[in-house]
Amino acid sequence: MNASMKLLLVLLISLEVSFTHSLSANLLLISASLIYLLIHRTSLKAIMFLALVPFLPALGLFVTIYYFSPGQDLHFAWVLFTRMYVYVTVGASFTLTSTPLELALSLEQNWHLPSKFAYGTLAAFNMLPKIKSAIVTIRTAGLMRGVVLSWWSPQLYFKAILVALNWSENLAQAMISHGFVEDQPRTFYRQIKVTGLDYGFLLGILVMIQLPIWLLP
């Protein structure tokens, strides 16, 4: 499925479950996402991680609603518990099966996102491994002078922003020297299309989930 269409579907589903209270629809969405992930050969380790990540916040909400809220509504407590898992599993069926590159290309070609936004953010996202090591370097450099830079220290952010300013200048220069010109029409080597099948999936799945959401508890 086209990356931006898949993202739209995932966002619409997440938005709708935020406002509705159907436990069975939540369970259905979780199982459907897990099946989708298994079809796409997601490793079991990644799926186990998905099960672990929302557990504490989901449990916290459950306990608060069931034991400490005035209504003590068990059904609503379960709805909120499963809702956290819907967010994570449905979201993962997008993030674990699409790359930022596919999304950026699709947003640029299918939804007319200006190319400076598509490639600018992509350039930044591709720096992620270097960003992590930059933070480690800043902290270590501080420690060598006997300065502990904790996560609430303005100096840590200040130094990180200096790195970002430097890199953004370099990356922009690199893009320009490779022939990137802002606000100019571009041709595409890799063509991304939105097909009728994409629209079919989007509308079909949205219509299908309305039944359990509105009819089942």
């Binding site: 933070i135 996560w151 952010y157 200048e169």
Partner: peptide, 24 residues
């Protein structure tokens, strides 16, 4: 007006903050 440099800077700041919060 937005320049590509500003856009990269914004995205970098977002990710940098994310990297700091990853440990938190």
């Amino acid at each position: 007006h937005w320049h590509v440099r500003d856009i990269i800077l914004l995205a970098l700041i977002g990710i940098l903050f994310g990297a700091i919060f990853l440990g938190t």
